[in-house]
């Protein structure tokens, strides 16, 4: 063990005060259940347990720049299984939110996807797979958009063949108004959506 970092409690305090459910991380006993339950564990640079440990140690930059805080897909496995009942998902989203609010965009595409997903749901009450991917692929300009589209072309064809994606645009759902008022409420609580 070579590196010599200093413990800095100020970041933990910052998290407790600013991040949704941030205080809950105090309960972590570092068992590793969250890390191993996560379906995206292979893609994360630090699993939730390590994020919590780093917050405690005061590693602000590492935490806010971690890709893992942006990766959570809300599958709830870790949260359901956490032996200390930590709302891991809320904390991860909270951290992502906080990082974005501080102008840190580690995984901009995740944020973009989130925004587009939200907006589409808000508009029609459902996801139009082709529209969502188009918006998501082309968010960084037309060249990248074409590249990304071509990469995913095969997947698109398979989805079409299996009827998972329609050629015609999706219609609005019935009762879209009620849904919108629900989503508005969610926005107010600050827990929903990714704003870029």
């Amino acid at each position: 063990m070579e590196t010599n970092t200093s413990y800095d409690p100020s970041f933990a305090r910052e998290v407790f005060e600013n991040v949704d459910s941030g205080e809950e991380i105090k309960m972590c006993m570092q068992c590793g259940m969250c890390a191993a339950s996560c379906p995206l564990r292979e893609h994360m640079d630090y699993p939730p347990r390590q994020i919590f440990s780093m917050i405690r140690a005061g590693k602000r930059d590492m935490v806010l720049n971690a890709n893992s805080i942006m990766m959570c897909t809300s599958c709830y496995t870790c949260q359901v299984r956490c032996p200390r009942g930590i709302p891991v998902i809320d904390v991860m989203h909270g951290l992502a939110h906080y990082a974005i609010s501080k102008g840190i965009l580690t995984r901009k595409d995740t944020a973009v996807f989130g925004r587009e997903f939200w907006q589409q749901i808000y508009k029609t009450g459902r996801i139009d797979e082709k529209d969502l991917s188009r918006r998501y692929f082309f968010a960084d300009g037309i060249i990248t958009g074409i590249k990304k589209s071509l990469q995913m072309a095969r997947m698109g064809i398979i989805m079409l063949l299996h009827g998972r994606m329609k050629i015609l645009p999706e219609k609005k759902i019935k009762g879209i108004k009620s849904l919108r008022s629900m989503l508005d409420k969610a926005m107010q609580t600050g827990k929903g959506g990714s704003e870029v």
Binding site: M1, E2, T3, N4, T5, S6, Y7, Q30, S53, M54, A57
Partner: peptide, 15 residues
Amino acid sequence: VETDDELLGERVNIE
């Protein structure tokens, strides 16, 4: 206090 923090995997200094 200089400590080997096992779970962080680092030697840390608690000041």
